[in-house]
């Protein structure tokens, strides 16, 4: 089966054509301009994954939210399950960018890390 993909690894957005055989094995990848594009296409054809960025609720902070992201992509069909899990998280300020909020989220092999500092209410920034 042939499929046209747009590579999402970098802003170049290469148009890649990937082909699989009857067993689902990738037999050809064309159109990418680097090896990461090739890796993306193989991954996308066999086990599509996405990274996720959102935010978590921070209590007693100068901001109500801290932005977060996953350290590795997770299976695409798990994104909404991961969101449900993230939505329940509450942390107390202060929080620091780089802190792990959840280790190995839902056992998917990716950590959820905080991507901005939120100082506690009433403190100097």
């Amino acid at each position: 089966m042939k499929k046209k993909l747009i590579c999402i690894v970098c802003p170049n957005g290469c148009e890649i054509t990937a082909e699989t055989d009857g067993s689902g094995k990738v037999i050809s990848v064309e159109g990418q301009s680097c090896s990461r594009g090739r890796d993306y296409a193989v991954q996308e054809m066999t086990d599509p994954r996405r990274t996720l960025t959102t935010s978590i609720r921070i209590e007693h902070g100068q901001m109500p939210l801290a932005s977060v992201r996953l350290t590795a992509p997770v299976p695409k069909d798990m994104i909404f399950k991961v969101m449900d899990c993230i939505r329940k998280i509450r942390m107390n300020a202060p929080v620091k960018s780089g802190t792990v909020a959840v280790r190995d989220i839902l056992g998917l092999g990716a950590d959820l890390i905080i991507t901005r500092d939120v100082p506690a209410e009433g403190t100097e920034k």
Partner: peptide, 9 residues
């Protein structure tokens, strides 16, 4: 690949 706040930081 960084988020916006991390890039700014």
């Amino acid at each position: 690949t960084l988020s916006g706040p991390e890039y700014a930081k």
